[in-house]
Simulated scan of single mutants.
Amino acid sequence: MQDLEHQKTRNDDAVYIGIDVSKTRLDIFILPSNERLSVTNDRLGHNKLTALALQLAQTPLIVMEATGRYHRAAFERLSQAGLQICIINPYQTYSFGKAMGQNTKTDTVDAYMLACFAMAMRPSPKPPLPKRLAELKELVVSRRQFTVRRTALSNQIKECCSASVCQMMRAELAMIKRHIAKCDTLMKKLLAGNLPLKARFDIIISVPGVGFVNAVTLLAEMAELGDMDEKQAAALLGVAPHANQSGNHHGKSRIKGGRKAVRNVFYMAALSSVRMQGGFQEFHQRLIAKGKPYKVAITAVMRKMIILINTLLKQNRKYQPKHPLT
């Protein structure tokens, strides 16, 4: 009872700031004072917002949505001032707003809902990614986008009838392939010049089935690996089974959530691992022999692999093959 009273008091004294981010403006709402204001989304506006937050009686918990590059400069400026900021998946705040019965959408309302989200959920603040890791992540995302475009162009060329259009498409395809190769070169150069990142990369790629693209994707887009338990690692990738039960109904457990883009890349690593000696081939074959569907078995392999990688990073050691992984 005393803990609950203490929590209530602490929450009553706390300050929460919701920031709705757009290209040119930051809309701000402060709870519990119900103050609202707007600043420009540039260095001058970021400095004004930082000064305002530092002048508050209590250190505020600040929440803003991930909006690509538009939130990054403000996030970095606030973090440099020692403030607590949480970058939230927009789907979380969208679901929160629906649960609150909020159907109106304006910048001010969005900032208010973000402040309410901070007050109700108290998400854990996270610092910005280190500069080199942020650069690596941008290269990884760019490479993935180029790869999607390469696949689309290759398919379009197969259906193209015009010789002139085919020629232009092939020229664009060749350029995209050069960009992909350039991304790979830049990523390797970045890793070679950063010993901590290179050490983590070497640990990840030591696991059977994990290639260069798999390793840099995990390194850049699942930077939390090594600092969580096995259930959290599986859930972050999106390969943890979620129960589907209600009353007498017992449905099949299914995976959901997690980081889809990383999971799609890691799926290829699992496929490679089950086809090679010393990988997860024996474990996969045992699941198939028990009647598990192929993709269910592959998902189980993905879960084992990400748990193994998380453990190796936590222990700061490479995988040492001794016997088939089971």
Rank of each mutant, 00 (worst) to 15 (best):
F29H: 15
N11V: 15
Y16V: 07
Q7P: 00
D20Y: 02
N41E: 03
K23S: 12
D42H: 09
D20H: 09
D12I: 12
K8N: 07
T24W: 04
L26S: 07
S33T: 14
P32E: 02
P32S: 03
V21D: 01
D20A: 07
S22A: 09
I17T: 04
E35I: 01
I30A: 05
R10C: 10
D13A: 15
L37V: 00
D13I: 15
D27C: 04
V21T: 09
K8S: 10
D20R: 05
V21R: 01
R36D: 11
D13V: 15
G18M: 03
R10G: 09
L37D: 11
L37W: 09
K23Q: 10
I30W: 02
N41G: 06
D12H: 12
D12M: 11
E35T: 06
A14Q: 10
L26H: 06
T24A: 15
F29R: 08
D13T: 14
F29D: 10
R10L: 15
S38G: 08
V21L: 00
I28H: 03
L26Y: 03
D27M: 02
D13H: 12
V21H: 00
R43G: 02
Q7W: 15
D20S: 05
I30N: 05
R25L: 12
D27A: 04
L26F: 03
R10A: 13
T9A: 14
N41C: 04
K8C: 06
E5T: 11
A14C: 05
V15R: 03
V21A: 01
K23V: 10
N41V: 05
H6C: 06
R43C: 08
N34V: 01
N11Y: 11
V15A: 05
T9M: 11
K8D: 07
Q7L: 15
D12Y: 07
V39E: 08
Y16L: 05
G18L: 02
T40M: 11
